[in-house]
Each structure stands twice: as C-alpha cells, then as structure tokens.
Design a binder for these strands. Structure first.
Lengths: 256, 256
DNA sequence: CGCGGTCTTGAGTGTTGTCAATGCTGGTGG
DNA sequence: CCACCAGCATTGACAACACTCAAGACCGCG
C-alpha cells in the first residue's frame, strides 16, 4: 500500500493510473516489520535499500560518543528515507523506529528503472528530496533561533500539517502521535523536563491536547502564530492554516 | 579558475584532463563580483543559476519575520550553492556574501550537458551534494546537543579542515577567516557576547589565534577533542587530524 | 583624524538544565 | 481480575549556563 506516498507526492503533481500503480509496485516488494526502538539501519552500516515508511513513525538520528542523541527528522507514513545515500557508501547517522513500524525496502535499481520510464515520478521524487532538505534547514532555524515554547509549538505544527497532508488527521483535528517527550527533547535540543513544561503551557493555553499517543490541535492558527510557523517550506499544495497562500507546485516545465 | 572546485571534488575521484577542463569551462562563463554584505540571491526569488564560489566566503541563511537570522551553512571557495533548487521554484532561504565575493553563475543546462557527457563528474557532483547535506545534519547536531564552547570549537574545526582540503591553509596552520563574531553567533545559535567569551576561552587554552580575519589553529588535535569533532561526515580523502582513519571514497561502482 | 563596524568586558537577569522523587498507564503473568 | 512492572509523564527545588543591556576599546579605512 503506497497510499500515503501517493498522497504525499500528489502535492507535487497529479499522477496517471500508470504512475500510481508503479508506485504501488515499488512499495509491495520486500516489506519489513520492526518494533518500537529498533534500528532500521545504523550509523556506520552501508545502505542497501531505500526505505519507505508504510505504517508508524521513524526518525533519523545521530549519537555522539558520549551518548547524547540528536534526532534529525521524523518520518511519517509515506516518507522515503534514503533515496541517494548509497553514493556515500556509509551511513553517517541511523534510522530508528519510533513506534511499531512497517516499511518497504526498495532497491535503488528499481527506483532508477521506474523513474527512467516515468519522468514525472522522477521529478516527484526530486521534489520530495528537496522538501526534506528544506525541512532540515527549518529545523536548524528552529533550534538555533527559537525559544523553548516556540520550538515545541513549531514541531507540533509541522508534524500536524504533514499528517494532515497525507490524510491522517481525523474530523476532530486529532492524529496519531507516538513521539515521546524524550524523543521531542532530543529533536529540539532541550531537556525532557523543559519539554514537558512547554507542553503544559501549550495545553494551558488551550492550543493542544496531547495524550495517549494522540495529538489534537484545537487552535492551529494560534499555534502557528505562537511558533512563527510558515508552512511554505513544506511546499504543500494547500498551505492552509489561516489565510490561503501558496500557489500549487504543479510540475510545469518539461524537465531535463 | 575552477581550481578550488577541482581540488574539492578530487576528494571523491581523480579526474582526467578532459574532466578537469570541463570544470574549468563551467567556471569561466558568467562571473559576478559582490561586496561584503550583498545577497547573491534572496529568499522568495526564483533561482536561475547554480552559483559557484570562486573567491571569498558566503553563507546560506534564513530570516525570521522578527529579524532573527539563522546561518545554515558557510560557503568557501570551490563550493556550489544550489545545484538542484530549481525544482522548488522559489528560494526558501537566501545566499549572502560574507566577504567580497567572486562567483561563477552556471546555467542548470550547462551542468546537465557536462554531467551527461562525463558521468564521473555527475557522480562527483552528487557526492558534493550529499556531503553538503551531511554537513547540515552535523550542524543540527552541533546546535542541538553541544555546549557553547564545543559549538564554537566544532565550527572552527570544520571550517579549518575544509579550508585545508582545498589548499587554503598555509604552512603555519593559518587560513583566511572573514567570518565575524556576529556571523558565528547566528550560525551557532548563541549570542554575540557568548561567542566572544567562548573564543576567549579557546585562545586562553592556546588552541587558536583568531584575529585580523585570519584563523590559526595551533593544536588541531586538542581542538577536535574538545569539540567532539569527527571529520568523517565531510567524506574527505584524508580525514587526518590525529590518527589517520577514513578510507578514500574513490568511485567504485559504475553508476546508474 | 574621525568614523563605522567589530570586538571586548562587566554586571545583573532569567531561561533552561540537573537532580530526584512521585504519579500514571498499559501490558504481563499469575 | 488483580498485582506488578517498566516506561513515560510530571513536579519541585536549586544551580548554571547563556542572554541582555550598556559602555568602552580597538581597528581599518577614507
């Protein structure tokens, strides 16, 4: 089931049946199940496959010699982990499961074959890569410049909007959120205790409800304002929230 | 003069005369000169060219609505700025000159043509891109996990090692360093005053001499240890420092 | 010589971290 | 169905690292 991947990539272009089923194909080869804290692949190993998250949450992280951990990104269903890392031969970071996880392992060759045949998919994958990089830059800005509250709020905004973009937010404005406070703090560069207090604040403001691995956002507009969150770096088709802004990123040119 | 670019890419593969002169060609088309604080391209504009730094320092940065600035990376001679950002149509960050700057503007088509004809160059550009991403991840880790002193030391290590890799460190262990303390603090997520104090500490330890836009590293080993600096993310051929470690990243496979 | 930008320093404040204890919850086995 | 346990969340008290404000020194350039 490449459903989430398709939904995500459709923020870039609308696909034909052929393209859709090619994506289905990719996602249906090898599948793999992991438990909560397992590693998909560890720092130092050499990447063999491109990993596609089908179900559950994962993260990219780095461990320092003294044990400190920095989470570099979260992966939600539909996310592709390491499209091109095989060029570097060795992983300089790890990919780990946050929750029980189902992934598809895709051989780089398979990707090559499909994208050669269907150039619009190639461009969609590119778009996807670049959004990933833009997100990392936004994280850098988040950690570097924003205060504790802002950081937490910003990350919640981002995750919520991404979940919404793949249809995982329900009618009440709630979505699965298996990320623990320890994970959050390693992602945001603040202590667990402080993360907890910032979350309390957000709850007290009536902005969110976070419990039982579920995040409910009650006032996205206010949360976005508090976080200084501008969703344009996600390059989604509908960058909604308050005002409707971003024009769609439809693939115009006829490529290279 | 694509000298620095060639030196840098030769960390990935050794080039033939043909490849070398193709790189020369790329760098010799349009050139552009900028002053100290000028923007090469600003947030919101649409990228037209790939920018290659020929001389001077530049940086990638983001400005928040309230004026806070996060520097996302530094560009030194030989660095390519935005190899693929044209897919996204709009810059989500700016590129600015740190010092007087000379750059070459390369059209995406020219890159395409050259890399199609010379696949080893294509792979070298890939390698370059991926090293850039790895560096951003390392910065995220740096800001997220390390203390003030470590952060400053880490950034100095990185810059010094990169400068050395392109032959810009002289026999006394000194290299040009036009980055101001204000720039450093925006890159590291700490205040100017604090940056200044951390630098004092490093000087007091006898690790560095930093003055007159010149950085001299007196004890790289100690600086690396202090910073927890592991150069492997730079994927240089000789990851020297103390012990000699990393095996060369010679291009083995025959590509896609 | 004067000026702007950069660097340096001191003093006081406060955000954030650490330590440590307690509460909560879901899952497991008896 | 209950007791127990592990992992996670929460709280309080205190310490410390880093920030702000503000003044002054330095340096290169015109």
């Amino acid at each position: 089931m490449a459903l989430y991947l398709i939904r995500k990539l459709q923020n870039f272009a609308i696909f034909s049946d052929e393209e859709r089923s090619a994506l289905q194909d990719l996602a249906s080869r090898r599948q793999r199940l992991l438990n909560g804290r397992d590693d998909v692949i560890a720092q130092g190993e050499r990447p063999g496959f491109v990993n596609l998250v089908l179900e559950g949450f994962a993260c990219r992280y780095k461990i320092l010699p003294d044990g400190r951990r920095q989470i570099l990104s979260f992966f939600i269903p539909g996310d592709l982990c390491d499209l091109h890392s095989d060029v570097l031969h060795v992983m300089d970071h790890s990919i780990g499961a946050i929750s029980p996880l189902r992934i598809a392992q895709i051989a780089p060759d398979e990707i090559d074959a499909v994208t050669t045949q269907l150039p619009r998919l190639r461009r969609a994958f590119w778009w996807n890569e670049l959004v990933g990089e833009a997100t990392t830059r936004e994280w850098l800005t988040n950690i570097g410049q924003r205060t504790g509250t802002e950081r937490v709020a910003h990350l919640l905004c981002e995750t919520f909007v991404r979940m919404r973009a793949i249809g995982l937010v329900d009618g009440t404005g709630a979505c699965p959120f298996p990320i623990t406070q320890a994970d959050l703090s390693d992602a945001l560069g603040i202590s667990i205790v402080h993360t907890n207090r910032m979350l309390q604040d957000l709850r007290a403001e009536g902005l969110i409800v976070l419990k039982g691995r579920t995040l409910q956002v009650d006032d996205l507009g206010a949360l976005m304002r508090l976080a200084n969150f501008d969703p344009s770096y996600l390059h989604l088709r509908s960058n909604v929230g308050e005002e409707t802004g971003g024009q769609p990123e439809l693939d115009r040119e006829t490529t290279s």
